[in-house]
């Protein structure tokens, strides 16, 4: 029996879908069987981020309405052993699926997969409630901005009200150089304000744009800092204690000196 995680945030545009795609890919690279479930009915995007948009035949709503079996709607990602996507419907709206039906689909997926990652829509309405309905635990994604952290706080309250275990936080798109200057909230600021445990930190990385353009998750790229961060988070999800990576800007003078002197980690 596998485990289901919902990736959610409240605010849109903080990187839920990118996070879902990269964590799913990373877990598959670690040898896990993973199902990605796009719960954003009407505004699906996980298929595009994964580069699987041309392979959709059936979707979540088709499964729920009985037009096809679950196995028929699952798209196998041929690049990564054990990785599958269940796309959202694009032409229906959020009321096409009920929380009970969502629980059913996720339950069925958990029988086959080690991990079911549910990509939640933004907001706190029915789509969000559906996404949370089938989840065993929740991962909150935020960025170091007032609006995103504020919405994360609201979501944490709703996750608690749904009686899920205490959620964990991913801080996305952090810019170490701005944090250093005092022009961006640092991790401790956000953890203190939200009173939440940290799952990981993902630095701002242009490679994310490039990899999304190509439909190839950055987690597969060895040179990507964000990809490395996502791979670390995937290992933490599995229960491995992986230390946070240093957020020192690459090629900084101190880092280069340390490297020269053999102190580099």
């Amino acid at each position: 029996m596998g485990e289901s995680l919902v990736i959610t945030s409240g605010k849109g545009g903080v990187g839920k879908t990118t996070t879902t795609a990269n964590l799913g890919t990373s877990l598959a690279l670690l040898g896990r069987k993973v199902a990605l479930l796009d719960a954003d009915i009407g505004l699906r995007n996980l298929d595009v981020v994964m580069g699987l948009e041309n392979r959709i035949v059936f979707d979540l709503v088709d499964v729920v309405e009985g037009y096809c079996r679950l196995k028929q709607a699952l798209i196998k990602d041929k690049r990564f052993e054990g990785l599958y996507l269940l796309p959202a419907a694009q032409t229906k709206d959020k009321t096409a699926v009920s929380p009970e039906q969502m629980k059913g689909v996720v339950g069925e997926l958990k029988e086959e997969f080690d991990y079911v990652l549910i990509d939640s829509p933004a907001g706190i309405e029915q789509g969000f409630k559906n996404a949370v309905a089938g989840a065993d635990r929740a991962v909150i994604v935020t960025t170091p901005e007032v609006a995103a952290v504020r919405d994360a706080d609201r979501i944490i309250g709703l996750i608690e009200a749904a009686e899920l275990p205490a959620p964990k936080l991913i801080v996305n798109r952090i810019r170490p150089s701005m944090v250093k200057k005092g022009d961006m909230m640092d991790i401790d600021d956000m953890l203190e304000i939200l009173a939440i445990e940290l799952l990981g930190v993902v630095p701002e990385d242009e490679m994310i744009v490039v990899s999304t353009n190509r439909g190839e998750p950055a987690a597969t790229l060895q040179g990507s800092r964000a990809g490395e961060a996502y791979r670390n988070i995937a290992r933490r999800i599995q229960g491995e204690p992986v230390p946070l990576m240093s957020l020192e800007a690459e090629g900084g003078l101190l880092k280069r000196l340390k490297k020269l002197m053999g102190f580099s980690s």
Partner: peptide, 22 residues
């Protein structure tokens, strides 16, 4: 430092949010 301003604004807005939401 703009991060201190952000923190303070966040702290205030959350006092209100948490009080009105519960």
């Amino acid at each position: 430092r703009s991060k201190d301003i952000a923190k303070e604004r966040l702290r205030l807005v959350l006092v209100h949010d948490r009080a009105s939401v519960a």
